[in-house]
Write a protein that binds this DNA or RNA. Structure first.
Lengths: 356, 356
DNA sequence: CTGAAAGCGCTTACAG
DNA sequence: CTGAAAGCGCTTACAG
């Protein structure tokens, strides 16, 4: 019995070949299959990680894929759940109750660790003892806050935005616009990203900069994008917080009769699945989504096997790379390209440009 | 002990209030949490479903979301895994070995049922005893084959394509093109979808029809799309197997200097997340992805609780609805709009048009 | 190298 | 209504 148990788990070289064969043959003829539940009860390890990350877009799917393959190498399985429906993503911060229920479902099944998407990390810790006690290792994605004790994995926003700024400056742009997504307190990446761009521009002579962002529900996107492109000091290059906002700039430009990149250059962020298919193909920052996922898996696995020890937090930052496609070009050097001067009064309250 | 077990599971009304309070108080002060692993060992039910479906695009994500919420209502949890990396989706049919390993990992953890993406369903059954014996209920998504004994859930392709054909015919189109994705033997939906369109066109007087499809790796998409739009009998309306192929038509049209919908109308399929953001916004068929997922969850749950019994296969078909946006309009009634007659020789071998 | 024994944290009949 | 007993399918020391 004990021998069989060990042989079936692979300890074949501690036993005689005959015994091994006998056990293995019996097992396969009986259609035996190991029961990881029992092992979980005995050892306290289920080789299972709860992943509370909604697959909002292809970035998150890529991340999930990385988590998947990172865990697979150690024979771990992810259990991916999230509160709410994808239909009203990403507006489910309020579903705290459902989220806590979800965490409990995961913990009832004795997941060995947890990978969490930012809005949930802090909220759940208040309600779920295991999180607060740090009984179960937790990795949070794309989030940074001093109050957080869990390990984190995120894109190196500052580095990424510097490559964007350098690219546009090298093309000759000096009048910049930035269109941000909503910035909730959970979206520290959004703040870091924008600040990263602003820092990279800081001190460069002759630069003007104008920024806008969507409202909380993101419902005013086209308005905001349209206004950004108009007026006397309109930018020659617009940087978007993500490829989603870059789409808004494309739409606004089309409505205004402006051509990309002739009239305005556009840079996205994420390199989502549709970015290469846009017309023109979008220049954007490729986040290494699956690498982020693999890093998250490694952190969790490291905490579990003890190779990462100590109570100090580990913050992994992954660099991202600019993908130059057709949406960026040098600014027009000829006449100021404004077509709708009549509308310029609407943007008078914007930050003054140094180039007019 | 037995009483505590029952009370903790919610049988509070069979016991005195005092006992219940005592048990509940003790449980919470001890930080007790139910252990579903043990219950799984005892009852043979883990309340866990293996979902082998790669989140290839927002359709599959929506489906996964539906599975999630469908299972959640019964306090079941999905374990979503897939072979390979998202980076080289959807070209992982060949990963049979890794897929089988994945199935075994799932079964070792005693999932109660399985939801499978088409290419895997048949391949795995050969290697995994539980699938072949039908010990574990299985639902296959978007697949149809007589050899298959599992229940299935799919979009009603025929109905969906009829609404597409009716829409275009009502606008006045008679010259049609169809751009298909690759059609592997696992993609029965692709065949049904195309046949659905062809059937809807069948017998309508004065109709011409020309079709093309991508190669197995999908690498010749732009070429194929470009050729479809050119030549003497070029279509005034193109229907795409999915929104992905519609993007190719947009790109080809842009390269040829053709305007959508003025020069050619385009209809997609799926209503993926980027479809509404395309320029112009894409008319497409909205597949009810999360409804498909919920139906899959219901089928599994029904098999498990016995409300769906018998060995006959259940095939659920979900209707889809046309979303009219700006990429379709009546055909130009004036001059034939061909701009590159010089290229027309390249498409001579195509099916002849009845309108020239 | 190989067996018999206890135990993981419950659940399920079965007595009181 | 409430306890003592057996057992789920293993794993883990511990003897032979």
């Amino acid at each position: 019995m004990a021998a069989a148990s060990r042989i079936l788990r692979g300890d074949t070289n501690e036993f005689s070949v005959a015994t091994c064969d006998r056990v293995l043959a019996a097992a396969s003829s009986l259609g035996w299959r190991r029961n990881l539940l029992v092992r979980g009860v005995q050892t306290g390890r289920t080789q299972t990680i709860g992943v509370v990350v909604p697959p909002y877009d292809s970035f998150w799917v890529g991340l999930l894929s990385g988590v998947n393959s990172g865990l697979a190498r150690a024979d771990y399985l992810p259990i991916n759940v999230w509160p709410g429906d994808t239909d009203n993503m990403p507006y489910f911060e309020s579903d705290e109750e459902e989220g806590v229920r979800l965490m409990n479902r995961l913990l009832d099944r004795r997941v060995d660790g947890l990978i969490l998407w930012p809005p949930f990390a802090l909220a759940y810790a208040k309600h779920v003892a295991e999180l607060h006690d740090q009984t179960v290792p937790v990795v949070v994605i794309d989030y940074h806050a001093d109050a957080l004790r869990s390990d984190t994995v995120a894109t190196n926003e500052t580095q990424a935005m510097r490559t964007v700024a350098e690219h546009l400056l090298a093309l000759g742009h000096r009048r910049f616009g930035y269109i941000g997504c909503r910035e909730t307190s959970a979206q520290t990446w959004a703040l870091e990203r924008r600040r990263g761009f602003e820092i990279a521009l800081d001190g460069v002579p002759g630069v003007s900069y104008r920024r806008c962002k969507l409202n909380r529900r993101g419902s005013n996107g086209l308005d905001v994008a349209t206004r950004l492109l108009q007026g006397g000091s309109a930018p020659t290059a617009v940087v978007a917080a993500t490829d989603h906002e870059a789409v808004l700039i494309y739409q606004a430009a089309a409505a205004l009769g402006m051509k990309i990149p002739d009239d305005v250059s556009v840079v996205g962020f994420a390199d989502l699945d549709f970015a290469a298919g846009m017309i023109p193909p979008l220049t954007t920052v490729r986040q290494r989504a699956s690498e982020l996922g693999r890093q998250a898996a490694s952190l969790i696995l490291g905490r579990l096997d003890g190779s990462i020890a100590g109570s100090s937090r580990h913050d992994v930052r992954v660099d991202a790379e600019l993908v130059q496609r057709r949406s960026t070009a040098p600014p027009r050097s000829d006449q100021p390209r404004q077509r709708r001067a009549a509308n310029s009064s609407r943007i008078r309250r914007q930050r003054r440009s140094s180039s007019e």
